[in-house]
């Protein structure tokens, strides 16, 4: 945002803020990221903890939504099993553009310690991921840091999402 040293209120001038459309839109997008409550396993507990008293996600404008239609960012917290993968993609499809994905925890990133028949070896096989969050389980601070990194990323993007195809990497 443009910064002004003139105090318009006292000098009775017009309150004018100069900025570009991109910045204005991205300011709005990045400061009210509403994640989808997509708790899958252990990381979901840490996700809840980061929304609860001590870590308090609300101060970042982050309010968990239960419906994909109202959400901007999907935090995939936990192990994605093969049985569930179809539903993960379905929910991702139901989210409205623009949308971002945070893959939380080792299991979501790469399958983690579950190198078994039933686990998807990294959610990026089915959903394009913006931020990978290491840890098993990542602490709430890590999730908050990831969200701030995502805000940074959004501010860098163009407001016109069609221009961002390469940046966003829609893999499949």
């Amino acid at each position: 945002m443009a910064q002004h040293k003139v105090n318009y209120a006292s000098s009775a001038g017009l309150p004018i803020v100069l900025t570009s459309a991109d910045k204005l839109v991205n300011w709005g997008r990045s400061n009210s990221l509403w994640p989808l409550t997509y708790g899958l396993a252990c990381c979901a507990i840490e996700m809840m903890a980061s929304g609860a008293s001590r870590y308090d996600f609300d101060r970042m404008g982050t309010i968990f939504r239960a419906s994909p239609r109202q959400a901007d960012v999907m935090i995939l917290a936990g192990t994605l099993s093969k049985k569930h993968s179809e539903f993960a993609r379905r929910l991702y499809d139901q989210m409205t553009e623009p949308k971002w994905v945070i893959s939380m925890g080792s299991c979501a990133n790469t399958g983690g310690m579950f190198n078994t028949y039933a686990t998807v070896q990294g959610v990026d096989r089915i959903i394009p991921v913006d931020i990978y969050l290491p840890g098993c389980a990542p602490r709430p601070e890590t999730l908050q840091y990831a969200l701030m990194m995502l805000q940074k990323k959004i501010r860098r993007e163009s407001a016109n999402m069609n221009k961002n195809t390469k940046q966003n990497l829609r893999l499949v």
Binding site: K82, E86, G111, N115, T116, Y117, Q121, R125, I126, V172
Partner: peptide
């Protein structure tokens, strides 16, 4: 333990179809 051929392509086959196996690549 890591599953057989069917298991390794299960989610790709189900979501995108067999023709996307090459695009996404093996696990």
């Amino acid at each position: 333990m890591i599953g057989d051929e069917f298991a390794s392509w299960y989610e790709v086959d189900k979501i995108f179809g067999k023709e996307y196996r090459d695009v996404i690549g093996p696990e």
